[in-house]
Design a protein around this nucleic acid. Sequence first.
DNA 1: TGACTCATGTCAGTATTCTGACATAGCCTC
DNA 2: GAGGCTATGTCAGAATACTGACATGAGTCA
Lengths: 154, 154
Amino acid sequence: MSQAAQGIDLDTSLGYLLKEASSALRAAMEAVLRPLGMTVTHYSCLELLAQRPGLSNSDLARGAFVSRQSMNVLLQSLERDGFVVRPADEAVGRVQPTRLTPRGRSSLAQATEAVRSVEQRMLSGLTERDQGEARRVLRSLVASLRDPSGGVVG
Amino acid sequence: MSQAAQGIDLDTSLGYLLKEASSALRAAMEAVLRPLGMTVTHYSCLELLAQRPGLSNSDLARGAFVSRQSMNVLLQSLERDGFVVRPADEAVGRVQPTRLTPRGRSSLAQATEAVRSVEQRMLSGLTERDQGEARRVLRSLVASLRDPSGGVVG
DNA sequence: TGACTCATGTCAGTATTCTGACATAGCCTC
DNA sequence: GAGGCTATGTCAGAATACTGACATGAGTCA
């Protein structure tokens, strides 16, 4: 209570720790993806498409935590370089589904391997049970932040 | 193993959850700081200075997870607007310590209040014990990512 | 003392992302 | 069917952060 009245203690704040962990993870991912000529958003887009083929530009933006506009320019370059296709005949209304090409799939394969090594290193100090706890806690944080009615005061 | 051989399952990946939580937190912080005319980096800088007066530009950059150059331009605007001072007579070598002004302190007070409400909402679904577990887990993640020798394969 | 290494502050240019804005298409209600 | 609401794709401009580069100062070691 003594410290709480003044500011937010950065050494114990879960918010600060969250940002620290996320920043460290992003840096580690950038380090392994750079040799492959890929950025984190680039990789995220491909991974999303591999697991959920036909995702729209807006879907991909939400999944990669960037704006529609940013994802749009990324998709244009990915399409130009032959990693994805957006067949016009599959369009429903304004929505243009996106799919990986064989080239996009093989490019993703290398990246997935690299990212998996980072994730394994990140988890190296945690038991299976710890990881389950971490998932539960993080999901709770996200739900509480999204829910407008959430909060201590109601 | 079936899924692991293909890609990284985004629904269970701790890395993805980490990014999701961090992104949600940042969005919530931006939402409450915007009315105060403050960005997240802006706030982080002030909060760091409140808790550790005399921090250098490089220290602040590391603490706010941005580059020295980005923090430098931010400090220039903060100094121009009278939120911080960098007394030349306190310089030791190249290091120029930075301190909050009374105006900076009062500006921070409002922001801290807003950010605290976000953090409390974020933690509303967690017990005290959960929060302790979360801290432990996040610290482990950071340590494993930073340590070059860390990793499953050694 | 001199060379080497490292960290810092800062300038310049580049790159990336975001916000604002607009037209279009689907959905729902009346 | 008409009108309002929402979501999407996209263009343009602004804000933000990053990389590269350079000079300066501290610490180390021969």
